[in-house]
């Protein structure tokens, strides 16, 4: 399973990628790899995390095609939508990304107002964790417990509480979305 999480630097894209990889490798003892984008840019630049999750040893972690694209910002979506395999899945922030006609190759498109939910929780910085909760609910690639433990381990202690809340908000939002359409949930399996 090949995944890209993309957005702006500062949105927690790298941390989300790390937590996802960590959840798979350490919490579920699967094989996983994670490659953050690495460049002179810091905040504001385009940013992507590439994650591979597998039950077997991962030969090639430097992927250029993906099964799941998680987009948190429009410019990043515009760049990485090319990487999506036909029949792949898009998860996106409802307010910050508007999928265009190129998204038609996707089999499913799920949207979540991750940043808005995070703002309502009091800190927009946790939008990445809302998205991870959402991802966890709609794809079921990683179990709820494993993912939540990974979030707990992967964020600074003083922000643990808000992040765990953000995770559950995203997760519950995801359950609602797939609850409306069970077929969609199965498609990912």
């Amino acid at each position: 399973m090949e995944i890209i999480i993309c957005g702006f630097g500062g949105q927690g894209i790298v941390r989300a990628g790390y937590i996802l990889g960590y959840a798979a490798a350490v919490m579920e003892d699967k094989e996983s790899s994670f490659v953050p984008s690495y460049g002179p840019e810091a905040r504001g630049g385009e940013c992507a995390s590439r994650i591979v999750i597998s039950n077997e040893r991962i030969d090639y972690p430097f992927i250029t095609t993906v099964d799941i694209l998680i987009a948190m910002a429009q410019p990043a979506y515009n760049k990485y939508i090319e990487y999506l395999k036909p029949g792949g899945i898009i998860l996106h922030d409802e307010d910050l990304v508007k999928p265009d006609e190129r998204a038609s190759k996707a089999s499913e498109i799920y949207s979540v107002p991750a940043t808005r939910i995070a703002e309502r929780l009091g800190n927009r910085i946790v939008a990445n964790i809302v998205m991870l909760g959402f991802f966890c609910a709609v794809t079921k690639i990683i179990g709820y417990d494993a993912m939540k433990k990974a979030v707990e381990a992967g964020v600074p202690a003083r922000f643990k509480e808000i992040n765990l809340k953000a995770f559950d908000k995203g997760y519950n939002y995801g359950l609602e979305v797939i609850g409306k359409d069970k077929r969609k949930a199965l498609a990912v399996q």
Partner: peptide
Amino acid sequence: DERLSHLYEK
């Protein structure tokens, strides 16, 4: 090399 230095794995 740089690729490996920033690759995360188990």
